[in-house]
Simulated scan of single mutants.
Amino acid sequence: MAKQQRKEIGLAVIGCGTIGRIRAEFARAYPGVGWIGVCDIKSDLGHKLRDDVDADFFTNDYKELLNRPEVTATIIATDENFHFDPTMLAIEKGHDLFIEKPLATDARQSAKILEAIEANNIDAVVGYTQRFRRRFLAIKEKLTTGQIGDVHSVVTRAFMNRMVPIATVRRTQDRATLTPMVVSGTHSLDMSMWLMEGKVPKSVFAQSSDKVLSEWGTKDSTFGVFTMEDGTIWSMNISWALPEVWPGSVYGLEIGIVGTDGVIDIEDTHRDVVLASNHEQGGGYVPDGYNPPPRHVDFLTSYPPGDLHNGQLWGPMREETNSWFQRIYAGQETPHATAADGHRNLLMTMAMDVSAKRGVPVALPADPEELMRELTG
């Protein structure tokens, strides 16, 4: 991205839940943001966020907000199933875009979003927060500079507490595409593909199990093996059905990357800082009305957005959000995932689900129409 003249940001935040709130709070503290409008269908959430960040405008109608002349940039932070309509309107208005993953939960809608972004030359990024953690930036640099040669074998494993899927699926009955890979495995998939940048997936074979979370309309685990066009093999798996007492707030990740000249072995399970206490520990995505059993052990720093200190959130989501403001305010290069990355990630995660359903490998890139026909038919 070329350097450009600094321009004051007029920001629209669509969705005032946990993530929308976090990013709006960062926006209020960023000097390049001159105007903030917020929107949510729940007035209580919206009014509270408006008051807390001293927003200039609140509405229940995203169209009303996105049509405001002050708005130059939009954050899409609604529930996963409701990204399409506000995103398309923001593209029509020419706004810079930050879209929480995924672009959409319908592969056909995701394709339409990407097509519109590219046709209108919109600068759009997707929320893959882990790219902004120091350890992964350091690893990316070593790979980019060829320190382990040509990568030929990769293993990725993600473990998650089951409160995340329960919190996700209980918000909607439209659950056909709210699977471990599409909703959460996409983060570890994006990280692995970013670290393997330049590798093009050719096919995937996957299998799933659903002994625990079938009552919630989703799977427990999905394991798959990708083959790349250059012969690189990559084993990718996620289980988001760990017991509620599992100490990790959200994500535990391990990645092994083997190249012709070396290896990088990543242990990102957060078991290096463990808290055990007589006091009950919270954290993670605990849905309203859901009462998990108490847990007294916690892996500190395992909440992906970051950690609270003195009433403020510190960590990768702060870096990611402020870097986006700097990107559109001053034209700074950033490591954000692009809309093309986001669409690719969705198709790959859905292809894993289709392969698991069929019991045979799926060729890549997959067709959005075929994916949706298979997953929702």
Rank of each mutant, 00 (worst) to 15 (best):
L143P: 02
E80A: 15
L66Y: 01
D56I: 04
R134D: 14
L103E: 04
A206K: 01
Q332T: 04
S192I: 05
V71H: 03
M348Q: 08
K7T: 04
G252T: 07
A107V: 08
T78Q: 11
D106W: 03
K219M: 12
F132Y: 06
D44R: 05
G32Y: 02
A339M: 05
A124C: 05
I99K: 04
R327A: 14
S209M: 15
W240K: 06
K142R: 03
R28N: 03
T145F: 14
M228P: 00
T129W: 13
V125A: 15
I36Q: 12
R50D: 06
K219T: 00
G94V: 05
Q109S: 13
E197C: 06
G94R: 02
L11R: 01
S277K: 04
M193A: 14
N120V: 11
P305W: 08
W234F: 14
E100N: 09
R133T: 09
A27G: 06
R271Y: 03
V125I: 15
G185N: 03
V164T: 14
S153T: 11
F98C: 05
N67M: 13
R162M: 15
G331F: 11
E229S: 05
V245C: 11
S43R: 10
G15M: 09
E215Y: 04
G377M: 08
V13T: 04
I257R: 06
F132I: 03
T145L: 15
A363I: 10
F159D: 12
I166F: 12
G289L: 10
Q173G: 13
V151R: 00
T260Q: 10
D230S: 06
L11W: 01
R171K: 13
P361Y: 11
M348K: 01
T179S: 13
N322L: 15
T376K: 09
A29R: 11
D190R: 03
D85N: 08
V263T: 12
V13H: 06
D190A: 13
Q207F: 14
D150S: 14
L45H: 08
D298W: 05
Q109A: 13
M88H: 02
S184F: 12
I122V: 09
R6C: 14
L213V: 02
H343E: 14
G359E: 00
I19M: 13
L65Q: 02
E244W: 05
D85V: 13
K7Y: 07
V169Q: 04
P180Y: 07
T338R: 08
R295G: 08
L300C: 12
R68W: 04
T227Y: 05
M160Y: 01
N81R: 06
E80Q: 07
R50T: 05
L178K: 02
M191A: 12
K140C: 15
R68T: 03
V274C: 14
P247S: 11
R131H: 02
K202H: 02
K112G: 09
L103C: 00
R170F: 09
W194I: 11
E320V: 05
K93F: 07
L103V: 05
A176H: 02
D52K: 11
D210C: 14
T321E: 10
V33A: 13
P165R: 10
T222E: 07
I41M: 15
D54S: 13
K211W: 07
T156D: 12
M191V: 03
C16I: 10
Y285N: 12
E244L: 13
D272L: 12
L178C: 04
T172I: 09
S43D: 08
E254M: 10
S208W: 04
R318Q: 04
I139P: 01
H152N: 10
V286I: 15
D341N: 10
M228F: 10
I9S: 12
